[in-house]
Simulated assay, not measured.
Amino acid sequence: MKISALLTGRGNNTLKDKNILPVLGKPLLYYPAMAAKACSLITDFYVSSDDEKILAAAADCGYKKIIRPDELGLPTAQHKDVIIHALSEMKKDGVEPDILVVLLANSGIVKTEWICESIENLINNPNLSASVPVMLEMDNHPYRSKRLREDGCLDTWFDFRGKSISTNRQDLPMNFVLCHNFWTLNLKNSLYSKEEGQQPWSFMGNNIKPIIVKESFDVHTEEDILKTEKWLQLNNISY
């Protein structure tokens, strides 16, 4: 199977140049880029961005540049459209992957073993559409969340009439939230499938194998940069 990596990051961010801010002396995107580079299962490496500084930093890590059209560099751009554009450019280069690892440039919380495990999940089970890192989150369980009614009062997201829901989080079904560090796609069953996938990340398809991790976060503030450095040091991540 052809397995490729696609690093994604745009230049128009609230935190200026966040994808290339220094983290332990390297640009932030260096860490997801090199985590994928260290996975022997991946043979091709590409970066998609509208920002030349991001493209150059990724090129230093051995990633081939894909320049996005302007509309895919806007805050309203959807990841699905970015992936589709990148795949079309990769095809021109003679690369048509079966499995695509989509890396997000603003998260350094990535381990090579997670990436390899996600790929192996898809290889070992051809019916899967994706394999992604998730965290167990019980405090902010959807059963405990509220929406705002038109009258300004709170209400449940679900119709619980006739049901009794425990107030104890340990009694509730396990709730997982997706991490935003990388997503590994079996393109035949996800992006290229005629079946509609799970919203809002419909491009992941419907058969998504989780990789349960203890911690994940992406960078939105300067404080997140310091948290990333601490995580990398605690986990002895270096390349």
Rank of each mutant, 00 (worst) to 15 (best):
V132C: 15
N189I: 07
M138R: 14
W231T: 08
K227G: 04
H85V: 01
S129T: 06
S40F: 11
L72V: 07
N106W: 12
L226I: 05
K111F: 07
D98G: 04
F160Q: 13
Q170G: 14
V47D: 03
P133T: 05
L55I: 09
A56L: 12
M174N: 14
R161V: 10
L28R: 09
N13G: 00
L154W: 12
L128R: 07
D155S: 14
G73W: 08
C39H: 12
V213A: 04
V95I: 13
S238K: 14
K92T: 03
H180S: 08
M90Q: 03
L100Q: 04
K64G: 03
D171M: 10
P69Y: 06
K188P: 06
N207F: 03
C153D: 05
A105F: 00
N236P: 03
P75S: 04
L100D: 04
T112E: 12
Q78S: 10
F160W: 13
D93M: 07
I165C: 14
N181I: 03
T14D: 00
W157I: 03
L7H: 01
N125P: 00
V110N: 12
D139Y: 15
W183P: 02
M90C: 06
R144Y: 11
Y63P: 05
R169V: 15
N106V: 11
D81M: 08
P133L: 09
I84N: 09
K2T: 06
K209Y: 04
L104Y: 09
F176D: 06
A58Y: 02
T221D: 07
A35W: 00
S129F: 02
T228D: 06
A5T: 03
K18I: 06
F158R: 05
N236D: 05
K2Q: 08
L6D: 09
K163Y: 08
H180L: 11
A56M: 07
K92V: 02
D98P: 01
T167N: 15
S190E: 14
T8N: 09
I67G: 04
K53E: 11
F203D: 00
D218I: 07
H180Y: 12
C116M: 13
G62W: 06
L24W: 04
N175W: 14
A57R: 00
N19P: 01
I211L: 13
P210L: 01
E222W: 02
T8D: 02
R10V: 11
W201P: 00
G62D: 10
Y192K: 14
N124S: 10
L232Y: 08
A35P: 08
C39M: 14
N168T: 06
L136Y: 01
G108W: 00
S193Q: 15
R149W: 04
